[in-house]
């Protein structure tokens, strides 16, 4: 039981982060918290890829003959994904500032016509 949990640790953490991110996004009226939830969700995706690259008893992926290596490709992809995530966070915060300048708050208004 405990061994199972330890072996699947990164995947459990992935699920936890994704759910926590979704909860933050949906449950709060504060828009900054929604953006934070989004960032948690993106981080969960990154963690999933990193967990995939792990191999039992393998070494750092630097060219070395004869050693088993962790898979380096997910790391390369996730560097890109992190950059994308930061860019989105930056745009989100810039938009938040404009919302604050326009309406004076970043709480979701009671009579929003933004929805569907």
């Amino acid at each position: 039981m405990i061994e199972d949990i330890v072996a699947r640790g990164p995947y459990l953490l992935f699920a936890l982060l994704a759910v926590a991110g979704l909860y933050l996004m949906m449950s709060h009226r504060n828009l900054m918290k929604a953006v934070a939830g989004l960032y948690l969700f993106q981080t969960a995706a990154i963690l999933l890829f990193i967990a995939l690259s792990y191999r039992e008893g393998a070494s750092v992926p630097i060219a070395a003959d004869g050693l088993e290596l962790h898979n380096p490709l997910p790391h390369a992809m996730m560097l890109t994904a992190i950059v994308v995530g930061v860019a989105i966070l930056g745009v989100a915060i810039a938009i938040l500032r404009r919302i604050q300048a326009e309406t004076g708050s970043i709480e979701e208004g009671p009579t929003g016509d933004e929805g569907g």
Binding site: A18, L38, F41, I88, I95, G112, G115
Partner: peptide, 23 residues
């Protein structure tokens, strides 16, 4: 800006879902 943030949150959520699927 409010519409854009809505779009950003839902859109990025969709992109993250896609990325997880790729994983």
């Amino acid at each position: 800006p409010r519409a854009a943030l809505n779009y950003l949150i839902i859109g990025s959520l969709g992109a993250s879902l896609y990325l997880m699927g790729v994983g």
